[in-house]
Amino acid sequence: MIQQRANMDWMLKDLATSVPETRHVVVLSSDGLRMAQYGGDTDAADRLAAACAGLQSLAAAIAGEFPHGEGTMRLVVIEVDGGFFYLMAAGAGAYLAVLADEGVDAGLMGNRMRDLVARIGAHLTSPPRRDGQAV
Rank of each mutant, 00 (worst) to 15 (best):
R119F: 06
V27W: 01
F84H: 15
A92M: 07
D46K: 13
L55M: 14
G91W: 00
E79M: 14
S126C: 10
R74D: 07
M35L: 15
V27Y: 03
A53C: 13
A118H: 10
G110H: 11
K13F: 02
A63T: 09
G103H: 12
G132M: 10
A50P: 03
V19F: 01
A100V: 07
D14R: 09
A106D: 06
Y95N: 03
A45Q: 02
A45S: 15
P67I: 13
C52D: 11
R130S: 08
H24Y: 08
I120K: 02
D41T: 07
L28E: 07
M35T: 04
A45D: 03
A51W: 01
G82P: 05
Y86E: 10
L99S: 04
G93I: 02
Y38C: 11
T22S: 14
L99P: 03
L87Q: 08
V104E: 02
L108D: 10
A90Q: 01
G110C: 04
A61H: 11
P20D: 13
D81Q: 15
G64M: 02
E79L: 10
L48P: 02
R47F: 05
Q56Y: 01
G32S: 11
A89G: 15
I78T: 15
T42Y: 05
D101P: 00
G91H: 04
I62F: 09
G69E: 08
L108H: 04
N111C: 05
D115H: 12
V25Q: 03
N111G: 09
P128C: 10
L12F: 07
T125Q: 06
D46C: 14
V26Y: 00
S29V: 06
Q37Y: 06
P127E: 06
L58P: 01
L58R: 10
T42A: 15
R114F: 01
H68I: 07
M113C: 14
F84I: 11
Q37T: 12
L124N: 00
Y95I: 03
H68G: 11
L12V: 11
